[in-house]
Amino acid sequence: MKELVVISGKGGTGKTSLVASFAALAKRAVLADCDVDAADLYLILKPHIQQREAFYGGKVAVIQPDQCTGCGLCMEKCRFGAITEHESPSDENQLVYSVDPIACEGCGVCYYICPEDAISLVETKAGEWFISETRYGPMVYAKLGIAAENSGKLVTVVRTNARRIANEQELDFIIVDGSPGTGCPVISSITGADLVLVVTEPTMSGHHDLTRVVDLTTHFKIPTLVCVNKWDINPSVCLAIQDWSEQHGVEVAGRIRYDNTVTKAQIAGKSIVEFGNGRISSEIKTLWRRIEEKLR
């Protein structure tokens, strides 16, 4: 069983549309959507949920108002600006304190120092994750709650379950739709993977972010391929990306043209290769064959 993680550094390069097409081409694969911030793969794969689990991530502090004497020590010691001060509704000379759950990091400092033991640390529901069936095979995905933290941990849950299902059903591939950026969720998406495909676009931003993600995959020693999507928007930047990749020992495994079919397929709820047989579909098929070779 081999695991491919598709990432992009910069958002909006067409990563998810490509993953949906790979899902259609791969057969015998488990799909995992680790882009928990913007989990869009389900819009194309239309999964039937079979198992739904709550995800608890991190803790937040809660102040019991009746036990708070208004000493203000918690606010003084909190480094995250998470504690706010206001007048007591019953007595205007009395100050009371409360925790902004969005700003709270759950570090426990206030809980620890409160002289009245008026503060507790409680686990918060950060989101939900799902095991489902799609027309292309099983899919694991997640939805992070609004303003929730810990998406790196949720990514780990999604990948672990995808791996377990691939083992149980003896499937050949795990195809992971990774997150944008270079921080916590991406690191959690790529560590221990067999291959990373970076989808970029021929723009200055695309090129710049590509260099950052390739630094990251090099740092974690993961074999990496690059695909330039919408390459014909700016052939000269595309060439620059190809040159840069060659110099850095990274193979450009495919170039895919700009084609409005991508948006049309998305609106139809289909993957590109399923939607039509145009040139873009054959470019995606060629790219997938190269990925398969590399994974074997």
Binding site: I102, E149, P180
Partner: peptide, 13 residues
């Protein structure tokens, strides 16, 4: 930053 998790919230707050 894109998304709706901690970095975006920190930026928009």
């Amino acid at each position: 930053p894109p998304g709706t998790s901690c970095p975006m919230i920190e930026a928009v707050r």
